[in-house]
Nucleic acid binder design. Structure first.
Length: 889
RNA sequence: GGGAGAUUAGCUCAGUUGGUUCAGAGCACCUGCCUUACAAGCAGGGGGUCAUAGGUUCGAGCCCUAUAUCUCCCACCA
């Protein structure tokens, strides 16, 4: 059979992907094994795979595949998030392209469009995940708006309302005038260096005096909503005016001049116009001074009749700003315009300038409900990796603010509040309309049929559904398990949940530590008194080589599917992980994937070599038995390190150890040592040991490179039971024979010296050399191995030094290779001189320590002994070198 | 403004309680090789005052103090 010298991933990957899928290899159902559960951070249902997903899911797959090999019942649950704002924005945009305005549609019609769209384009990302090799249980694919999930979200709302955690309140919120929705703080973005804006200095007349006051404002269009002017109480310039009244320009409404510490004397003019409806701080000042609220701006950003100037009603706020400025200028009230840098908040989704707005919204009280979640991380019941995020987490949790969970959208879970009157408290909260109707009827004392019900128009914040993800995907809130009286889940009744929950590790980005991670922890304790996961692995953002965030507009984000096509899924996975320490951002460079692909190829060729050998019943060479014995110890030693790295979630470190073990130790050393001469057969013993070693190597490599390992596995194994590398056992450790590892190290060092001499003196590899050895009591080398890889004719022990020879020292042993024709004595002398100089310097440092009485008296014995040994070694080396140098002269 | 973290080779990063030749790895770079698994390769090599200045210690990349620079998070001035 001819195997190509270059590994072609495409066909192999398709083959195994279909095989895994058809055989449901990653299907998980509860059994006797311990569980290892991972829930995917659900990507937006409308999303397409980008580099961030690539990294995120590769890490998860590595953990899950290894756990599966280690004998856990690994269950990785895939799914998607309905992502209310993001998806609704996309649907609205699409409809607009078709000439349909959202405002022309009824809620039902809009949702129909949205679901059609979701069915058509949604979940593309999941099929893309398959290409990457993600070993998820496809049968468990969940969606945050599945019927059962929807019900869970509503049930939790009702429950939290009952428990008193949910309330409805008037709050200053961030308002997106274009999407006409409230935004959470986290959905408001600020440009990095601020934006240039104008600060307008506007003169206000003071009632009953000729004096005027000048205020500075960014937002002259809100002047008509002014209810006061505030100054700092200690500001001498304005003290005498406190208690007087000013007149709002253009409309001449009387407003008080008040004193408030919030005002900074040094900013602007030291006078602040107070507009409670349009600024959060002004709102608070207004509350403190019991001032009225005049809301002059509509939901869509246009002005309303409260501005008292009919000509502005219906115009957009920015349009009005221009007109107001012009008018103030004409009336001589505009003192000056000043440029300054400010940080303007914009909607993450629509880029519109965010409008602070007073509004009735639904909130979750966070303080009490989050206490256990804070504790859990503090006490390491939940471990964050890297641990530095503990600080960030604590800081946020200790200063947690109430969570505004209502969004003025249609796509999402509709808030289960039903209004039956116009009073502020004329509403009930219930899981169904029927139930609401009965409750309302009770409140009103009338027949349920007569109640006029109106359900709240708003939907819930996306995170108010995804925070239930680790519970809801296992049906935790189902009727059978959820106790409405206690508001707890009866875990023992739910076989799935009690088996799979808590999950093992959550892999996600630090940017959503609060949005999502913290809230899942809160929900876990609220409903199960248990954490949702044991570990949280926080990986960084994928950036480009120059450290810029990857974005569509910069065009600096490669398409992961293209990378997979070019470098193979295995190569791309390795590329992603090569430079990805936990918690640090990853500076992605396509050459890393190239390195990954080259690694695939290296393994492929190692396999080609081994599979091409003819076996014969011949004696096993000494170099081969040594190689096998050494490699087994080496493997066991490195496996231990790999396992430790995994335990600490240092995935890229685990990969690097694996990479070097395979490339350097296995390919460069082991295979070269056992390789039979050209067209010679290999002995049976060595071949079978090598196949076993190869299997173990595939085992540790499998989590990183599932496809190529699966492919090679098929050729290597005759064992019908373990036909799949994906289901193979994670290699178990074994004995580490340190003395054989040391022997190998010494031998390798000698081989390298011989190779250097060859290279520096143009001695062809084909020319067999003779190596003389003098004084071998120090480190033992393995003669057969050195002979083979050094290209030696023979090794001869000698009691005397050999003249006219290249020399080197390894340990306390001297080695000689007699000169051939092309010899550069001067270079040889210089080499020895350099080594002597270095060793003398080294000895000096050691002696400095040993002559220091305080060192000798206070350092531990082991450290001192070591210094003594260093001294002896150095002295003997100096003697040899001096000797040689004189011989060369 | 508040908080957290970082600064080690050209680049990205390790360096676990201060003590093995501790100054490391990968990539990049340089030199020589198309040697029979692999040029997507092989062999060899150069490269760092561990940000700066002090301090503690027999001994500091590691501990302490100050300074500089950078990153992130939170809050935010009309």
């Amino acid at each position: 059979m001819e195997i190509p010298s270059k590994y072609d991933p495409t066909a192999v990957e398709d083959k195994w992907n279909s095989f895994w899928a058809e055989n449901e290899l990653f299907r998980s159902t509860p059994d006797d094994r311990p569980s290892y559960t991972v829930v995917i951070p659900p990507p937006n249902v409308t999303g397409v795979l980008h580099m961030g997903h690539m990294l995120n899911n590769t890490i998860q797959d590595v953990c899950v595949r290894r756990a599966r090999q280690m004998g856990y019942n690994a269950c990785w649950v895939p799914g998607t998030d309905h992502a209310s704002i993001a998806t609704e924005a996309k649907v609205v945009q699409l409809l607009r392209q078709q000439g349909i305005k959202k405002s022309d549609l009824s809620r039902e019609d809009f949702l129909k469009h949205a679901f059609e769209w979701k069915d058509k384009y949604g979940g593309i990302i999941l099929s893309q995940l398959r290409k990457l090799g993600a070993s998820v249980d496809w049968k468990r694919t969940a969606f945050t708006m599945d019927d059962a999930y929807y019900q869970a979200v509503i049930r939790v709302f009702v429950d939290l309302h009952k428990k008193g955690y949910i309330y409805r309140g008037l709050r200053m919120i961030n308002w997106d005038c274009e999407a006409k929705t409230a935004l959470s703080n986290e959905e408001v973005i600020y440009q990095e260096n601020g934006e240039t804006s104008l600060l307008y200095h506007v003169r206000y007349a003071i009632e009953g005096s000729g004096e005027t006051l000048t205020i500075a404002t960014q937002r002259p269009e809100t002047i008509m909503g002014d209810v006061a002017i505030a100054v700092n109480p200690s500001d001498e310039r304005y003290k005498h005016l406190i208690g007087h009244f000013a007149l709002v320009p253009m409309i001449d409404r009387r407003i008080p001049i008040i004193a408030d510490d919030y005002v900074e004397k040094d900013f602007g003019t030291g006078c602040l116009k107070v507009t409670p409806a349009h600024d959060p701080n002004d709102y608070e000042i207004g509350q403190r001074h019991k001032l009225p609220v005049i809301d002059t701006i509509n939901d869509d950003g246009t002005l309303n009749e409260k501005c008292e100037l009919p000509e502005y009603v219906g115009l957009d706020r920015f349009e009005v700003r221009k007109k107001v400025v012009a008018r103030l200028k004409t009336e001589g009230l505009l003192v000056k315009e000043e440029e300054f840098i400010t940080r303007i908040g914009r909607s993450e989704r629509t880029q519109t300038v965010v409008e602070p707005k007073l509004s009735l919204q639904w909130f979750i009280k966070m303080k009490d409900i989050s206490q256990q979640a804070l504790q859990a991380v503090e006490s390491d019941e939940i471990k964050l990796h890297p641990a530095k995020f503990k600080n960030t987490y604590r800081h946020w949790m200790e200063n947690v603010r109430d969570w505004c969970i209502s969004r003025q959208l249609w796509w999402g879970h509709r808030i289960p509040a039903y209004y039956f009157g116009s009073g502020e408290n004329d509403f009930v909260v219930a899981e169904s309309e029927t139930e609401a109707r009965h409750q309302a009827a009770d409140r009103l004392g009338i027949n349920p049929a007569e109640v006029q019900l109106r359900q709240d128009e708003d939907v819930l914040d996306t995170w108010a559904s995804s925070w239930l993800w680790p519970i809801a995907v296992f049906d935790g809130f189902n009727d059978d398990y959820f106790d409405k009286k206690t508001g707890k889940i009866n875990l023992s009744a739910n076989k799935e949940l009690s088996y799979y929950y808590p999950t093992k590790v959550l892999v996600t980005a630090p940017e959503i530590l609060f949005f999502w991670v913290a809230r899942m922890i809160i929900a876990g304790y609220e409903y199960l008194d248990m954490p949702p996961f044991a570990d949280v692995y926080l990986h960084g953002i994928v950036r480009d080589k120059q450290g810029r965030k990857m974005s569509k507009s910069l065009g600096n984000s490669p398409d992961p599917l293209d990378l997979i096509k070019t470098y193979g899924a295995d190569g791309t996975r390795v590329g992603m992980l090569l430079s990805s320490p936990a918690g640090n951002d990853l500076l992605f460079d396509e050459s890393l994937c190239e390195q990954g692909r080259n690694f695939s190829n290296k393994i492929w060729n190692a396999f080609r070599l081994v599979s091409g050998w003819e076996a014969a019943n011949i004696e096993q060479p000494a170099s081969a038995s040594f190689a096998i014995e050494w490699f087994e110890s080496r493997f066991n030693q490195q496996l231990q390190l790999i396992n430790e790295s995994y335990d600490k979630y240092r995935i890229s470190e685990a990969l690097m150890i694996t990479y070097k073990l395979i490339w350097d130790d296995f390919c460069s050393w082991y295979l070269e040592l056992i390789k039979p001469a050209y067209q010679q057969p290999i002995d049976l013993k060595t071949l079978s040991a090598t196949k076993k070693i190869f299997e173990r190597i595939l085992g540790i490599l499998h989590p990183f490179m599932p496809f190529i390992t699966e492919e090679i596995w098929q050729y290597l194994t005759d064992d019908q039971v373990k036909t799949c590398c994906s289901l193979s056992q994670w290699p178990t450790g074994g004995m580490v024979n340190q003395s054989i590892i040391d022997q190998f190290e010494s031998s390798a060092q000698v081989i390298a010296e011989i190779r250097t001499i060859r290279l520096q003196n143009n001695l062809p590899n084909k020319e067999k050399l003779t190596l003389f050895r003098r004084g071998s009591e120090g480190q033992a080398i393995h003669e057969a191995a050195v002979q083979k890889l050094g290209g030696l004719e023979q090794i001869i022990d000698t009691a005397d030094k050999v003249d006219n020879a290249y020399t080197f020292i390894s340990g306390r042993t001297e080695f000689f290779i007699p000169f051939g024709q092309n010899v550069d004595i001067e270079a040889e002398r210089q080499k020895l001189q350099d080594e002597l100089t270095y060793t003398l310097g080294f000895l000096e440092l050691v002696m400095k320590k040993l002559n220091n009485e305080k060192f000798v008296s206070s350092a531990p014995a082991a450290v001192i002994d070591n210094e003594r040994k260093k001294k002896e070694d150095a002295e003997s080396k100096i003697a040899i070198l001096t000797d040689k140098l004189s011989a060369l002269k």
